[in-house]
Design a protein around this nucleic acid. Structure first.
Lengths: 349, 349
DNA sequence: CTGAAAGCGCTTACAG
DNA sequence: CTGAAAGCGCTTACAG
């Protein structure tokens, strides 16, 4: 009366085979179909069976085999976090970290694994697009601010649910996205600079092929008009969202308009660079020149002086991105979510 | 004479079924077994068949279904990048980014997807340990500097191949790891400070439950002895690898030993904090006090003044971690890899 | 409400 | 060298 011999699989080094649905079924005295139904939510299962199965799951320590499930369900349960920026930006920009952490956490709550993919150049992009189009991921969280990104088009064409962070520029198809209210955030900042008495307000913009770059500049211009301040091109310099770029842009501003008394910089990282430029030019902040940033990224509190800035609600952004993606995966239509920003006053303005 | 009707699966929204091994076999005029053999490396396949299959793969755009493969192979093809630090560190420390990017790239070269997992607290750790122990990943790249981490033990117990970044402290089992030569790096830095004429050399250490914290301090002490300099406890303050921690530790040092003329700080981030403390105390760097960092992280070049530091070869570290993990997965024994560091002289010392 | 059965796409002895 | 066949662990109509 011995147990039937273990099935003759080659030893793979892994000590014990994890229990399968079959073990649970035997343990609970039901069929595998019933166990599976319990796993799927317990519809059409008698209370008694349900309880027996749950107990058996607990006793056996059963964990579903996701490969088997994905194979039969014809879809993956994982989600890709896809970066299409060149790697330097990824390194330097502290916002990426915040977003990545937030999305990982939000997905973890749904028990969904996050695949990190970085596609900084065209070969990588092709490889990754193929991987995703092959159905290896259930959906994509896309971080790619620059417009003209072919990945978006390819992904939607492959019918893969996508949610972008920030409005994808120059896309003919509707793609779901989550963004902060860049324009209103910029308006708040410029109003604040005006309120504290500044009248020659300059700006360092983001790249004009990114939604943040465009929208924050638009907010700046609108508010100037609203306040009856003239729009002066010498007060506008384009940056590239890097620290060095912010420093260079602030330097140009100082050359062209030495009388400026405030500068709204479209990202904290660039604002930190601008502070360096101002210090070198022996301008005191905020006494001579007030500086406003954007993001309220981790560095904002540790610049000298600490940055007055516009907070992007990163936690909510990641939550909404995940929520939206799950709804897309469930078959709902795209949507765009705009989240309000908040002015954070520290010492630089 | 119509095509056979498509198999009657419910439409899932995904437009076209990707081609399967079956389509390739038909296209190539061989059996599915032969196609599979080609996929596995082409052993025991005639040149003619091999060519026919490869051509068919190209024509059909076939991509292997990893779920099916993993199911039958009884192992996953993905690798987890597991962070067990509390999230703050992850945010603040630029080294994480560099390492993460490096590992993603190195794995991509082997066509292996990276799963990002963050386990900052015990419930998360349990959930993730269970996930991994269930065989959902083929191996783990572990980033966890603090000792007493239960995850390491659980993972090795579950027979999952693990490679750590930095030597795991207080582990009874041998676990493979890759680390920079922390001790020698610290020695180089202290020697450099001595060479430029400093004699009252202080240090801000890393946490003493981390390998870097311990080793870099050891290198500091050894070099002092070697140079005939006395070891003075007032010259040693422990930091926590955060900017604020570095600032605080430097402040303590200044209180206890106002005559110090150099400080070796065990990370660039803490060194940046130390610069703030020194500036507030009106000490010039490097004239009054020379400052040496560790890491050569992205921030090192943009501190004021730019940091003289010790470069950790992050690219090589990630390469070696991935190489080592793949060899572990292939069944080889653990190994530890120590990589040399390099002194990078900028302006702070 | 439940079980038996087919099938997801792949790999791998096995027999030729 | 090659094909037919079994099987990986799961889900889901289908028939009761």
């Amino acid at each position: 009366m011995t147990e039937p011999a273990p099935r003759g699989r080659p030893s793979t080094g892994r000590a014990h085979r994890p229990p399968t649905i079959h073990d649970v079924a035997r343990e609970a005295g039901v069929s595998r179909g019933t166990v599976s139904r319990v796993l799927q939510g317990g519809h059409n299962v008698s209370p008694a069976a349900l309880e027996a199965v749950n107990a058996a799951i607990r006793r056996t320590g059963y964990v579903v085999n996701r490969h088997a499930r994905s194979l039969v369900m014809q879809r993956s349960d994982s989600v890709a976090f896809l970066l299409t920026e060149p790697q330097e930006l990824f390194f330097e920009d502290p916002n990426f970290n915040v977003l990545l952490r937030g999305c990982t956490r939000a997905l973890a709550e749904h028990d969904i694994p996050l695949l990190l993919m970085i596609a900084g150049n065209e070969p990588e992009r092709r490889r990754i697009t193929r991987y995703i189009a092959a159905g290896h991921v259930g959906g994509v969280l896309l971080v790619s601010s620059h417009s003209g990104n072919p990945v978006v088009e390819r992904l939607t064409q492959a019918q893969v649910p996508v949610v972008a962070c920030g409005k994808p520029l120059g896309q003919r198809t509707h793609v779901a996205y989550v963004a902060a209210d860049d324009r209103e955030g910029a308006r708040e900042m410029v109003r604040h600079l005006h309120r504290i008495g500044r009248r020659r307000i300059a700006t360092v913009t983001g790249p004009q092929d990114t939604p943040g770059g465009v929208e924050r500049l638009a907010g700046y211009r609108e508010t100037l008009a609203e306040l009856g301040l003239p729009y002066d091109e010498r007060l506008v310099a384009e940056g590239d969202y890097t620290r060095a770029g912010g420093e260079a842009a602030a330097g140009r501003l100082l050359d062209r308009a030495p009388d400026l008394d405030a500068v709204f910089v479209a990202s904290d990282l660039m604002a930190d660079g601008a502070l360096t430029a101002l210090e070198r030019a022996a301008r005191r902040v905020p006494e001579d020149i007030a500086v406003g940033g954007f993001d309220d990224s981790p560095i904002a509190a540790s610049t000298r002086p600490p940055l007055t800035t516009v907070r992007q609600p990163w936690d909510r952004i990641s939550d909404e991105m995940v929520r939206l993606l799950l709804s897309r995966i469930a078959g709902e239509d795209p949507a765009m979510v705009i989240l309000p920003t908040e002015l954070v006053v520290r010492q630089s303005a």
